[in-house]
Write a protein that binds this DNA or RNA. Structure first.
Lengths: 125, 125
DNA sequence: CCGTATCCGGTGCGATACTG
DNA sequence: CAGTATCGCACCGGATACGG
């Protein structure tokens, strides 16, 4: 199905799309996805790689991603226990557009910064 | 510069990228961008097209996008006043990766929905 | 090691009312 | 028409402590 044209989404779909996008919009999901895109990671490896995330938010983020079918969670019941997270096929396919967006953001970092300073400069002082 | 590989972003850039992505993550920005991608719109036209947005959030969203240099705001001082919003060049370039993401979301709506039901089904009841 | 439970401050966002 | 101002709540997310 071609989404780029002809499909004027009915409002219900529109809201559902927004919900999906809000997932990638929350604070940590994108970081987690990008890390997992390099391969499977353990919980603590993710926690270490992402500086400044609380374990609460990491578990919540991973739960949501798992619920959406984007990451898989495999428990190895040893002592101490070991849990590995990995992108599913769908998760890997999501990584592509996300990477494109990340690349765009990176390329326009300074342009955006300049625009902000310009905007703030003519109002604040 | 090639972002897709070899560039292990230093943490400062990483946070700035996250900030940019948080813009597209907030509730209305993407909708506004997609609407403006079809051409310039007046304030009230945007408000009408997006069902359920308060005028407060519309102004805030537009202000932020303007501050980032993504949309331009042109005032026609008539009575009643008229304000048109339009994507800048940078805004149009952002629309492309955003459309890709939107297309992905649309394509995977049912897969995600199914995954969620499956996940909820084996835990809740 | 991997989580869950609880508390609590910051803020995103809607509702409403008022200006130019 | 296109905003700004104010209030109020819900909820996100950090800190901390505890359990398997």
């Amino acid at each position: 199905m071609d989404v780029t044209e002809s499909t004027v989404s009915p409002s219900s779909d529109c809201r559902r799309v927004s919900q999906v996008l809000s997932r990638i919009g929350d604070k940590w999901s994108v970081l987690v996805i990008m890390l997992l895109h390099r391969g499977p990671h353990r919980f603590s490896a993710l926690k270490r790689s992402i500086g400044g995330i609380s374990q609460r938010m990491l578990t919540l983020t991973l739960r949501n991603l798992e619920r959406d079918g984007l990451v898989s969670r495999t428990v190895t019941p040893s002592i101490p226990p070991r849990v590995d997270y990995e992108l599913t096929e769908m998760g890997r396919s999501l990584a592509e557009p996300v990477k494109a967006l990340g690349a765009w953001a990176f390329q326009h970092l300074d342009a955006i910064g300049a625009a902000q300073t310009r905007y703030d400069g003519q109002a604040d002082p």
